[in-house]
């Protein structure tokens, strides 16, 4: 039994057509799992399905040996999941520190140690903690977004294209931080456009095409797979 076990997910937005069909995703504790695939393959949709942000017509989600299929997103946060959306993932007119506080809104215990941990992980945020999140650069804003999600001390962190729109050098840095996060025992599930770099740090990779699983393997395995290389990694 895996840490996160989503099986047979089918569904879409509202009453619209299904975007993912019988899609499976699994993550083991403390590992990085990456979902890649062409545009419109349903990568983000699959992740939102796991977090309960869209209605799944079929499928079952087991998290930490519990069936969470019917829980609303806020209860999934209490179960130990955290989600970083691709866009609009910070509170722009609030300071970095306030963003982190809001991340921990559902916690009733003392959050200062968690804030310290986030600042250790992203030292730049400590320097800018009084600055408004909307004034930060794209990469820094992504750090705030991830930091906000970490405030609930999740055991599974889900990232929707964390490197979209940031410079390559910032992307490398972000990936390194994500590896640091897993080193502390948090499992990471992320959707990525930059497939090659993401798979390089992934323990496990999924290639989705048209809402279906096409390939599933270790990150290195997918990178080495000639068919994956040809179709999805640009040769």
């Amino acid at each position: 039994m895996s840490f996160l076990d989503a099986t047979g997910m089918s569904g879409g937005y509202g009453t619209g057509p299904d975007i993912i069909h019988d899609c499976d995703l699994t993550v083991e504790a403390g590992e990085i799992a990456v979902v890649v695939g062409p545009n419109g393959a349903g990568k983000s949709t699959a992740m939102k399905g796991i977090f309960g942000m869209i209605h799944l017509r079929e499928g079952k989600i087991l998290f930490n040996d519990r069936d969470i299929t019917a829980l609303p997103p806020s209860d999934r946060v209490l179960e130990g999941m955290a989600f970083v959306p691709q866009n609009n993932n910070v509170f722009p007119s609030m300071s970095v520190e306030e963003n982190l506080e809001m991340g921990a809104f559902i916690r009733t215990d003392n959050i200062s140690s968690t804030i310290t941990q986030v600042f250790e992980l992203f030292p730049i945020l400590k320097d800018k903690r009084k600055q408004m999140a909307g004034e930060l650069s794209g990469g820094q804003r992504q750090q705030v977004a991830i930091g906000r999600a970490l405030m609930t001390e999740p055991r599974l962190l889900m990232l929707d294209e964390p490197t979209a729109g940031v410079a390559p050098i910032v992307m490398q840095d972000l990936f390194k931080r994500i590896q640091d996060i897993t080193a502390s025992g948090v499992a990471v599930l992320m959707v990525e456009q930059n497939a090659r770099q993401a798979l390089a740090i992934a323990d496990r990779g999924f290639v989705l095409v048209q809402g279906k699983n096409r390939f599933t393997d270790q990150g290195k395995g997918l990178l080495a797979n000639p068919e994956v290389q040809r179709s999805f990694l640009g040769g």
């Binding site: 209490l78 993932n89 910070v90 809104f105």
Partner: peptide, 12 residues
């Protein structure tokens, strides 16, 4: 008021 969706995600 800043970001309604994210506020909901944060459990507000």
């Amino acid at each position: 008021s800043d970001n309604e969706d994210l506020a909901l995600l944060s459990g507000i």
